[in-house]
Design a protein around this nucleic acid. Structure first.
Lengths: 166, 166
DNA sequence: TAGAATGTTTAGAATATCTTAAACGCTCAT
DNA sequence: ATGAGCGTTTAAGATATTCTAAACATTCTA
């Protein structure tokens, strides 16, 4: 039952280029209302403590789960961010920013060595610059965060005013 | 030089959960104005014919490259879709749709077995249904395609009318 | 029809990623 | 100070992915 859901989320994560366990941990915490410790999670998913340690930090890094302090316990407890769309958005944003900065570095290196190139090469450089500008615009327009409820509202507003876009 | 750009695009693809070669082939075709054959690509990237065959079909499947018929030649030639943002969007869409259908199947199986469950379980089922509805809405609102130019226009319009969203 | 020119599939080698158990280091309670 | 209770790191084994060369299938040409 619950296993089924966790499995589904694991596959989903895998299909998005993440470790399967990342999806499984999120699903588990999402369904449970009480925060779980690292050992609880390891026991539940039948995986090692070290594996949970690594993958829960990944989840934490883009705000999918939050560390909770439970009075009287020395363990770290975690609970899921219940706004799943926000979680997905946060993840997408991290990836886009990383991809962009890599591309940017690559292209800057490229530009430096190609002053004395042929016309054909210059044409290619122009194309590359186009992509760079493009990514800059897209990246700048990403809001810092967005809640699921907000996004749905935005979408429905957009549909209503579609005529504005021709 | 060109190798640098191709390498950058390869890494970019890898960081998005694709095969590195997929990004490299796209970068190569993007920069060159004339279409290339399977053998040309293999020779350029120094990889096997079979590898190109598999990965170029992947690119073709979401409209990143197009097969071109060159009169007088029996080979298949390929050229890149120059609208890179559209390419990325197409890819994203395919992934989202796949992820949703997986989740949907998983959740339907889940629902069937949980009529006679406790209140606590029912509460969890409710949470799961929430996610499902959510993905449905997001998926429905994806337009079939969008050009880079269009998107940039949309974004700037959105910025101008931001007040509508509160 | 033979064989040359293509793209595809396949089996296994090469690489990369994931996972675990154990070692480790830190902090707290005694 | 000592040891128990944590989370993290590590090294090695397990698993999955990627890549290639060769076999294969199909289509064209002579």
């Amino acid at each position: 039952m619950i296993e089924n859901f966790i499995d589904t989320f694991g596959k989903l994560a895998a299909s998005l280029g993440l470790n399967r366990v990342v999806g499984q941990i999120y699903a588990l915490l999402y369904l449970l209302d009480n925060p779980l410790s690292l050992d609880d999670i390891a026991k539940n998913l039948k995986i090692s403590k070290g594996n949970v340690s690594v993958n829960i930090r990944e989840l934490e890094s883009w705000g999918a789960v939050k560390k909770i302090w439970v009075p009287g316990s020395r363990k770290d407890y975690y609970e899921a961010n219940q706004d799943t769309l926000n979680v997905i958005y946060g993840r997408l944003k991290v990836r886009l920013e990383k991809a962009f900065s890599e591309l940017n570095t690559g292209l800057n290196n490229w530009g430096q060595n190609s002053n004395k190139e042929s016309d054909k090469t210059k044409q290619k450089l122009k194309k590359i610059k186009e992509i760079k500008n493009f990514m800059e615009i897209v990246l700048k327009s990403l809001p810092p965060e967005i809640s699921g409820a907000q996004l749905i509202k935005k979408i429905s507003t957009l549909n209503k005013i579609r005529f504005l876009f021709k």
